[in-house]
Structure formats: C-alpha cells, structure tokens
Simulated scan of single mutants.
Amino acid sequence: MKLYKEGKVDIMDIINVEEKGGKQMAIMEITVVPLGTGSTSISQYVASCHRLLEIEEGIKYQLTPMSTVIEGDIEKLFQVAQKLHQVPAGEGAQRISTSIKIDDRKDKVSTMDGKIASVQSKL
C-alpha cells in the first residue's frame, strides 16, 4: 500500500485490498440534531434513529453520549445517514442539522472495536 503513504491513489490497489481482506469497512460518526421542536430534549429523536438502525442490514452501530458511530460499507453508510437525517422531520422537527465524520482507511481493515482496542492497549 505504498501508494497511499505517498499520497497517490490507484484504483487497482483498492481492488487488491478488497480481494485480500474482504470488503473495506468505513466508520462514520453521525449526530442528527432536530431544531424548531419547542424543546431542548432530543432523546426521543435519538431513540427513533436507533430504531431505524436496528432494522438496517449490513451495518454495526454504537450509541455514545454525544453521537452514534456506524460501521459498514461506505456507500451503505451514506444511505443510512440520509435516512437518519430525515427521522426528525417525520416527527415534526422544522429544521435538522446533521454532522458527519468519516474514517475510511485504505491501508488496512479498521473497525470500531479495533480502534477502541488500539487505544486500550496503550493505557
């Protein structure tokens, strides 16, 4: 994966990584904030988003105190993010602000559990 370290990307390297280690997974942190609800509480909207995640196939997810982290194929993550963004609108929110961060490693397979284990091994 030397090309990645040099800042050069070759589609054949991406294909080779997928053939060797399976489909690459990305990790997305998403925060969906409903606005214009008349309340400062958002836990009911978070719960509704997680009910949607429960029925989505091909992803793994983790609730955190400030966001939700989702793991899966990058294309699937964008589809899920779009669905999550719409959840508060279906419950009456007049405005929705969604923030997304993506960790999409191409040099090796990365998972939510692996990232946590890496930090814990250094504690």
Rank of each mutant, 00 (worst) to 15 (best):
L3V: 07
G72Y: 00
V33L: 12
I15T: 10
S67R: 06
K76T: 06
S110M: 07
K76R: 13
S121V: 03
L3Y: 10
Q24D: 11
Q94N: 09
D10S: 09
L35D: 14
S97M: 13
I14Q: 06
K101M: 08
L35A: 13
I55Q: 13
T111P: 01
G72H: 01
F78E: 04
K101D: 10
V17Y: 11
Y61F: 14
G36T: 09
I100Q: 04
P34A: 02
L123K: 10
N16S: 12
S121L: 05
E71G: 03
I96D: 00
Q86H: 12
D73N: 09
S67E: 13
V87G: 01
K115I: 04
I74Q: 03
R105A: 03
G92R: 06
D113S: 09
T37L: 04
S43L: 12
L35C: 14
T68C: 06
G22V: 02
I11K: 13
E91Q: 14
A89R: 15
I27R: 02
D107A: 08
G90P: 04
G58S: 06
G72D: 02
K23Y: 03
T37A: 05
G22L: 05
H85I: 09
T98W: 06
I11G: 06
Q86D: 11
G22N: 05
E19V: 14
